[in-house]
Amino acid sequence: MEQFQGRVWLLGDNLDTDVICPGRLLDAPIEEIAEHALESVRPEFRAEVRPGDVIVAGGNFGCGSSREQAPQVLKAMGISCVVAESFGRIFFRSAIAIGLPVLACKDVAGAFADGDTASIDVEKASVTNVAGGAVMSGERLSPEMLEIITRGGILELLKEKTGGAQ
């Protein structure tokens, strides 16, 4: 799997799904949700996020709702990878299921400042602050999870069985 190098958006603990995708927008298309993603904690996110950026966060990232729009909108806005000290479990599963790389890495939030550059090897579960140099080790994903991410999501595995939509 490719390695990711990107600019860091540093977020805190307990960053929940409703902050990523407000409930009032659950009936809206992803483009509209993107207008408001993270706006209550980082109003500049929409205007300044660039393809390839990474999110580095504290504990319990993506806690709360099962709304898949939360990982979807981050992926659609160009976030290449989310590294957090821990994840809400549904967000974690859904991110893998849609092919958004995620990595749990203890104490990672303290190793980065906003705007730093992170280098991430998802397969080896390693995270490096390019400026600081120290390599941090996260929790390795299972081979099945890595395969789902590499293939671009769990639906691709289904399509392989069926030959896709007729």
């Binding site: 709360g64 709702s65 099962s66 709304r67 549904i90 859904s94 849609i98 769990i154 595995l157």
Partner: peptide, 30 residues
């Protein structure tokens, strides 16, 4: 279930949990 509070059914001893739409599609297919 496609809702995070699917864990409610544990009140009578079921192992229940929420998942996203994509995983639900996979679960319903397979």
């Amino acid at each position: 279930g496609t809702d995070s509070h699917t864990c409610t059914y544990g009140a009578l001893g079921a192992a229940s949990c929420g998942i996203g739409f994509t995983e639900m599609a996979y679960a319903l297919a397979t």
